[in-house]
Computed example of a mutant assay.
Amino acid sequence: MFNEHGIGAVGFGDLAKRMGVGRATFYHYVADREDLIFRCYQRSCEAETERLDLASEAPTGLPQVLAFMELSLSAEAEQTAVIVDTSVLGDAHRTIIERAQRRNYDRLAAMIGAGIDAGNIRPCDEQLIARILPSIILFARMSGRWLPGRPGAADPEAVVDFIANGSAARRDTDIRVYKNADDFARITLADFGDRKISDLKMEQILMKGSWLINRHGVANVSLEDVAGAMGATRGTVYHYFSDREDLVRKCLERSFEIYDAFVDYAAAHGRNGLEKAAIVSHLNTQAMAGSLQPVAGWMGLDALSQASQKHVTKRLREVLARTEAFAEEGMADGSRRRHDHKAVTVARAGAYLWIPKWIGDIEQPSPHRIADEVVALFNLGLAAG
C-alpha cells in the first residue's frame, strides 16, 4: 500500500480495511505507525541483502550486477516497500535503515569494482553507479502509480539490457555536455536589477522549499521548516504561500519550467536524437546534484489534492512524451540502437530522483562529474568493450 499510494496516504485504518481486520490487531505486532514503516523498510533492506547474496553466486562482475538487477525487478521484489523517505522515522530507526542501505550500496559497489578489475565492466565510479542502479530499479517499480496502462514501463528485460549495453548505437560514442544547469535559474545576475524584490524572495523560498522536499519528502516539510531553513520569519513565508499544498504546487510549476527549458535547449543544440537525450539527462542530473534543485515531480504527489495530482500528472506525462520523442528520433537517425525505449525512458528518470538523498555520502560530489557518469551509463551501459 505504501508503494501504491505513498507513505503519507496510508494509515492503520486503511490497512485494516484492506486486510479485513480490526485496527486493534496491528497493535499486537507493531507499536505505532512509525514502527510499521520502520519494519517495512527494514525488511526491504534485508531483502536487498538477500538479492545481493544470490547475485554473488553468478560469475564475477557484470553477470553479478545484472543478476542483481533482474532479481530486484522481479515480482517477488515488488512485495517489499520502496524506501522513498527515511525522514518519517525517528533518529534511532532512521540510523538503522540508512546504515543498512549504505552496506548494500557498498556491496554493490564492490561487485562493480570487481567487474572493472576482471575487465567485463568498463571503468566507472563504482560508488556512484552503486547508488544510481538501485534508484533506477525503485523508480521502475513505482512508475505504474503515475503511468497506468503502460505495463512495459517496468519491463525487467528491457531495463537490464539497457544497464548492460546502454542506448548508443556505437560503442565509440563520446558525448560531452559543457552547459551548466545553473544557467537555467529563473533569476540570474543578468536580470537581477529588473526583478521585483517580491519575485526574488518568492524564488528564494521555492528553491529552499524544493531542496527540503527533495531531501525529506513532501509529507515531512512544512512552511515553518522552510522559514527556519531560510532564517526567515514564519510570516514571511505565509505572505507568499497559503499552505503547504500551495508551496508544493508552485515548486512543481517551477520544476516544469526548468524541465521544459532543458528539453528546449537540447532540441536546439543536439545533433541527433541520442545527443538530445544525453543533454537532457546531463542537465537534469546537474540540477538535482547542484543548487538548482527542481522538485522531483514524481515523488511528492501523494500530499496534493486530487485536482492538483491530476494536473501535475498531466504535466509529467507531457515532459515524458518530449523525452520519448528524442529516443524515437535517435532510433530513426541511427544514433540510438533499437530497444524498448518507453521502458528505458521511464527507468532513466529514476537515476535523478534519489540524488539529493544519497549525495551526502559521496566525496567531492561535483554535479558535472555525477552527470558525466549518468550519461556514460545511459549511452554505453556497463559492459566493457
Score class of each variant (00 low, 15 high):
Arg215His: 14
Gly217Met: 00
Ala219Gln: 11
Val221Trp: 01
Ser222Trp: 10
Ser222Phe: 13
Glu224Phe: 03
Asp225Tyr: 08
Asp225Ser: 12
Gly228Phe: 07
Gly228His: 12
Ala229Gly: 01
Met230Asp: 00
Met230Trp: 00
Met230Ala: 01
Gly231Ile: 11
Gly231Lys: 03
Arg234Gly: 04
Arg234Phe: 13
Arg234Asn: 08
Arg234Trp: 10
Thr236Ser: 06
Val237Ser: 01
Val237Met: 10
Tyr238Trp: 10
His239Tyr: 15
Tyr240Asp: 02
Phe241Ile: 10
Ser242Leu: 09
Asp243Ser: 08
Glu245Asp: 15
Arg249Trp: 10
Lys250Pro: 02
Ser255Trp: 06
Glu257Leu: 10
Ile258Val: 15
Tyr259Trp: 08
Asp260Ala: 15
Ala261Val: 12
Ala261Phe: 11
Ala261Cys: 06
Ala261Thr: 11
Ala267Asn: 13
Ala268Asp: 15
His269Pro: 01
Gly270Gln: 08
Gly270Ile: 04
Gly270Met: 07
Arg271Ala: 15
Asn272Cys: 13
Gly273Arg: 13
Gly273Asn: 09
Lys276Pro: 06
Ala278Leu: 11
Ile279Glu: 12
Ser281Gln: 08
Leu283Arg: 09
Leu283Asn: 12
Asn284Ala: 12
Asn284His: 11
Ala287Thr: 09
Ala289Asn: 02
Gly290Tyr: 03
Gln293Ala: 04
Pro294Phe: 03
Val295Leu: 14
Val295Arg: 00
Ala296Thr: 09
Gly297Tyr: 12
Met299Cys: 05
Leu301Phe: 08
Asp302Trp: 01
Asp302Asn: 15
Ala303Met: 01
Ala303Glu: 04
Ala303Phe: 03
Leu304Gly: 08
Leu304Asn: 11
Ser308Tyr: 05
Ser308Glu: 15
Gln309Pro: 07
Lys310Ile: 00
Lys310Trp: 04
Val312Leu: 12
Arg315Val: 07
Ala321Ile: 03
Arg322Gln: 10
Arg322Met: 09
Thr323Tyr: 07
Phe326Val: 01
Phe326Met: 11
Ala327Asn: 05
Glu328Ile: 00
Glu329Asp: 13
Gly330Lys: 04
Asp333Pro: 00
Gly334Glu: 11
Arg337Tyr: 04
Arg337Asp: 14
Arg338Gly: 06
Arg338Phe: 05
His339Gln: 14
His341Met: 07
His341Gly: 03
Val346Trp: 05
Val346Thr: 14
Ala347Thr: 11
Arg348Phe: 06
Ala351Asn: 03
Tyr352Thr: 14
Trp354Ile: 06
Ile355Asp: 02
Lys357Asp: 00
Lys357Tyr: 01
Lys357Met: 04
Ile359Thr: 06
Ile359Ala: 10
Gly360Ile: 09
Gly360Glu: 15
